[in-house]
Design a protein around this nucleic acid. Structure first.
Lengths: 344, 344
DNA sequence: TTTGATATGTAAAACGTTTTACCAGAGGCG
DNA sequence: CGCCTCTGGTAAAACGTTTTACATATCAAA
């Protein structure tokens, strides 16, 4: 183990015959008080020694860590998920563009209970936090509200208290899917939502109901199932629904995973998709183009959203804005999993 | 923005009437030189003030950052991938168990070119790095070799120089899949590999060839296609292969994504799976159980592997070991995408 | 020649910890 | 009494930066 001696700004000062302060001034290009000659000497020395500033020291001095945290919920395997993956990818891309690095955190119960989400700030681990996959049950988020902490909720929001957020318009998504299916001629439709405690899931349902109601169509409780946001859940939900309501001709799922699960379940129960039952998803993940049949789904601009959330978080950190509230539009991606209902 | 004053150990000292040193000693439980009485006083003060040590200061003092980086390659959207997701998930779980936090980094060309991978160490960003998804072309890894830096390659290794690694036995995987298909009665089989520059991909191929050769079966170059580790690639590769070799009855794919793509491609070209062509994948990702037909695949213990890699990295950081070289066994998960070939 | 500005540079403080080295008092022992 | 060893505690140095406030030399103007 060749222990390479860590070299500090002091070494550079000695090597270049300048003072500590001078080196720092040169490196940070503060005021250009330093003459080109010494400047040159210092830079040469930096190069020769391969000096790199210690960011722990920098952070201590500046009271900035240069990191932001991404907080994701504890799912089966939190990161093995295309939706969060896309979000994280977007955030990372933008953060590193502006010189920030990102820390990954999973909001498990112990994590929250031991107040580690607060400690991320208190202990100067990070300068800001992006919260993904939050639900209405995440009451701990309240502790972030208005406390002068740089926190942004990504693709959701909390109805019970004000929190910075950047979100897609899920009500419009539900409405859009509803109108699309109505246009195809469907009159008996079901919904598989992700979770009653997720606000965007409720919004989707409300939008869907609204579209149906405007066309004089009802969405009774018996046609609403919980699909848990998973393939398995979607599969089971679809089977339950078809058992209780064999006459259903179309299903809207709250995300693509449940939609794909639903397709599996429908096929398994002897229904053809889309000939017997149409299925519409929501998200438009990469995978949606590669199932059988390729999924018709509401496209939510997840990547773009992650990027925006990151940008706005930076604004909060730099003090350029005080609150963040953004809603982004969505649109439909038509593939092959939805068609007109078969003539009765 | 209510700026909450950051409170330091000095405040605790004043509040408790003890010295700075005493407070530190109490908090770190170094020698129990402190009397229970003062100990109590200090702890009370800590509680009253809600003091939390600043980890930048701690890091500066200890020369440890308490962070490890996960380095992933730049794919389409690096994190939106079940394989890397699983790995990251495992690493995060174990790291946080031992008090470490994780930093995400994508190894883009600019990142490497500007030497940021080295700077992660030089600038004291992290104490160690886990490299995922590396290829034989990642020559920059050489700079990590033997330099006394805590680096572990996860689920791969480099043939051209020694680097710490924890890896699955892909040669055995190839052999196992080959033997399984041979046992089913297949004699004309193709391979869709991920990339010629990935060592484990080559190992898989060698194992597969070996099994076939042992049974007197050849794997000519015309039956080997590149599937780019993606669904699209797998689909295209399967189509190319069947066009050139309509007599093929089974295909082994280097990962599940390509296998699923291949199934899509085969169906599209009019083949039934597995009746006309059997498909075997590799990885056993969650998704493998939810395609049509459910995928028969070689199970590589990815989660376990990520955890082990993290454990061994800790060993390196703490100086408990000097080198790491682990190979983990694999096994088959039988589902429905492979069956005996139809009688000719 | 003095005065004052300007240009270039530096010493020292500060950020918040941990660790090292030292100190005072108490008790034991010859 | 003189010496030594504990016990409980603290002052100060160190980690590596940035920033503030001061110092010196030069030069122009009065």
């Amino acid at each position: 183990m060749a222990k390479r001696k860590t070299i500090s700004i002091k070494d550079v000062a000695r090597e270049s015959g300048a003072s500590l302060t001078t080196v720092s001034l040169v490196l940070n290009d503060r005021d250009h008080r330093i003459s080109p000659a010494t400047r040159e000497r210092v830079l040469k020395a930096v190069d020769r020694l391969g000096y790199r500033p210690n960011r722990l020291a920098q952070g201590l001095q500046s009271q900035k860590s240069g990191l932001i945290a991404i907080l994701v919920p504890q799912l089966r395997h939190a990161f093995a998920d295309a939706y969060f993956g896309e979000l994280i990818s977007a955030i990372h891309d933008h953060a590193s563009e502006v010189g920030y690095k990102i820390l990954l955190e999973v909001a498990r119960p112990e994590f929250i209970k031991s107040n580690q989400h607060q400690e991320l700030f208190d202990r100067h681990f990070v300068d800001g936090i992006l919260c993904c996959g939050v639900t209405n049950k995440d009451v701990y988020l309240k502790e972030f509200a208005g406390a002068g902490r740089a926190v942004v909720v990504v693709n959701n929001y909390l109805p019970s208290f004000k929190l910075n957020h950047v979100c897609c318009d899920y009500k419009a998504a539900g409405r859009m899917a509803g109108e699309y299916l109505l246009d195809l001629g469907h009159r008996r439709m079901g919904l598989i939502h992700g979770a009653q405690e997720v606000q965007t899931s409720l919004d989707l349902q409300h939008g869907f109901e609204e579209a149906l109601r405007d066309a004089g169509v009802k969405l009774p409780a018996s046609l609403v199932e919980d699909g848990l946001y998973t393939e398995e859940g979607g599969e089971a939900a679809a089977k339950r629904m078809m058992k209780r309501n064999p006459g259903v001709t179309a299903i809207l799922a709250g995300n693509d995973k449940m939609a794909i699960g639903a397709i599996t379940g429908l096929k398994d129960a002897g229904f053809r998709v889309p000939e017997d039952v149409s299925v519409v998803g929501c998200d438009d993940m990469h995978q949606a183009g590669y199932c059988d049949p390729p999924l018709t789904t509401v496209h939510t601009p997840i990547y773009e959203l992650g990027k925006r959330a990151c940008e706005r978080l930076m604004d909060l950190i730099k003090g350029r804005v005080d609150i963040v509230e953004e809603i982004h539009p969505v649109n439909m991606t038509i593939r092959k999993s939805a068609s007109p209902p078969k003539p009765a």
